[in-house]
């Protein structure tokens, strides 16, 4: 080994040599594609409201439709192609949540419907669920305390 090159020095050397991800370009793409997904969601939501749903009902129905779209595009091998460009733009909306559940479900079907698909389905989304639910409980408790005071 190159004499005297410590792990720290090597880390620095590698960091200097490695290409950086194009952050600005990626951010713009994420903004545009994420924005388009949100526009689709808004159109769906307006449609439901126009058919006489309340704001809350329309919200739930829109989430269902967007999850369906995300799952469908995942199954059709389209979602990952969009995500390659969009990054956070496709991960953050609820369609990304659908993708993170449907993609392992498809992949691990080969180990059977029980030990494969069903048990591996939440391998990516699991942490989101766990910490999402914990966060909502904490917020609920705080809100309860604030309201009762």
């Amino acid at each position: 080994m190159e004499q005297g090159l410590t792990k720290k020095e090597y880390e620095k050397y590698v960091q200097k040599k490695m290409p950086k991800s194009p952050v600005i370009k990626n951010t713009i793409k994420a903004f545009i594609i994420g924005g388009i997904i949100c526009i689709v969601g808004q159109v769906v939501s307006n449609y439901f409201k126009g058919r006489g749903m309340s704001v809350e009902e329309a919200g739930g129905a829109t989430a269902i439709v967007m999850v369906l779209l995300g799952a469908l595009l995942t199954g059709l091998d389209i979602y990952d192609g969009i995500a390659k460009h969009a990054g956070a733009g496709t991960i953050v909306p609820i369609t990304g949540f659908a993708n993170s559940i449907v993609s392992p479900a498809m992949e691990f079907k080969s180990e059977g419907y029980v030990l494969g698909m069903a048990s591996k389905m939440f391998v990516i989304a699991g942490p989101v669920l766990v910490y999402g639910i914990i966060a909502s409980i904490v917020v609920g408790i705080i809100s309860f305390i604030v309201k009762t005071l």
């Binding site: 490695m18 979602y79 990952d80 390659k84 993708n99 993170s100 992949e107």
Partner: peptide
Amino acid sequence: ERQFRFPLEYGGQRPPT
């Protein structure tokens, strides 16, 4: 991919390296 990284259809981004 499925052993070391993510499912094929998962929408992730790959860094340049």
